[in-house]
Amino acid sequence: MSIRYVIRRILFLFLVIWVAATIIFFIPRLSTRNPVRQRLAELARTGGFAPGDIETMVASYNQKFGLDKPLLEQYFDYIGGLAQGDLGVSLHKYPRTVIELIMDAIPWTLALLLVTTILSFIIGNLLGAVAAWPRAPGWLRTFATPFVLLQGIPPVLMGVLLLFFIAFRLKALPLGSAYSTGVIPNWSLSFALDLLAHQILPALALILGSVGGWVLSMRGMGVTIHGEDYVNFAEHKGLGPTTIFRDYYLRNTLLPQVTGLVLALTTVVTSGIVVEQIFALPGIGTTLNQAIQNNDFLTIYGIVLFITIAVATLMVAVEFIYPLLDPRVRHT
C-alpha cells in the first residue's frame, strides 16, 4: 500500500464530508422556513408570551446563532466550526450542544448496531454459503430459503410484526423502551436482565431484516465460485469438503462480502434509526426523531452530518484492509 494511495483516499474522505456538509448547510436555506422563528412561534403557543416579543427574540436568537450574518460568512463559520468538531447548539435543548446530545445517545445505537450487524453478517453468510454448496445436506440448504424470503422486508416492518406477535399476543417480551418504566437504572443483575429483555426484539428485528440480504448475495457468490476452475481442481486433488468449503469457497467470498458490508453501512444506520423509533429505544435515531418533532433543525443537521462522517470514514478505513483479504488487491 503506497503512501500516495492513503493520502488520496483521505483527501477523498474530506471531499465527501465537505460535499455532505455543504448540502446539509444550503438545502434548508433554500426553503422559506426560518427555524428560529418557527421554534419561537411554537414556544409562544405553548408558553403563552405575547407575539410582539417574537421579533425582538428572533433578532436576539439570530444574533446568538449567527444567523444575521451574510450567508457566505455563516457558511465559513459553519465549516470552520465543523473542522473543530463543533456541530452547533440545540435549539430545543439550548444550551446543550449537538455533540453532547449525540454523545449521550451514541452508546445505545452503537451497541445495538454493532452486535446485530456482526451477527447477521456471520449468520447470513454461512447460510448463503451452505445454500450454494452442492455438497451440503438437503435440509440445511432448504433451511436457508425462508431467510432469503425475508430479504425484502425492512427491519422496521419486521419490528412491527415482532411487536405484534411476540410482545402483544404472546406477551413474551416488552413492547418497547429501553427498560421497564419506574425502574431506576442501577448495576443490579435484575436491571441488566430487564435491559437485555428490552433489546431482544429490536435486535431480532434488525437481524432478521438484514440476514436475508447476506444469504442472497452469498448464495449468488457461492454459485459463481463453485464454477471456478480452482474449486474444481481442489476436488480433483481429493481434498475433503470441509477444506474446500473453508479455504477455497469462503475465503474467496470474503473480499466481495466485506465490500458488500461496507456498502450496506448506510442501510444499517438507516434501519437502526427507524427501528429505535418503532421500539422507543434511546439512541441517535430517537434523538433525531425528537429533533424532527420539535423542529430542532440544528440538531437534525448536526446528527445527519455526524452519521455521514462516521459512515464515510468507516468506508474508507475498511478499504485499507482489503489487501489482507485478497493478495491480488494492491493499493497504488
Binding site: 471456478e228 476452475d229 480452482y230 477455497y248 485478497d326 493478495p327 491480488r328
Partner: peptide, 9 residues
Amino acid sequence: AMNSLNPVL
C-alpha cells in the same frame, strides 16, 4: 495457466 489455482492462497 488460467484459473486452476486458488488466488488467495
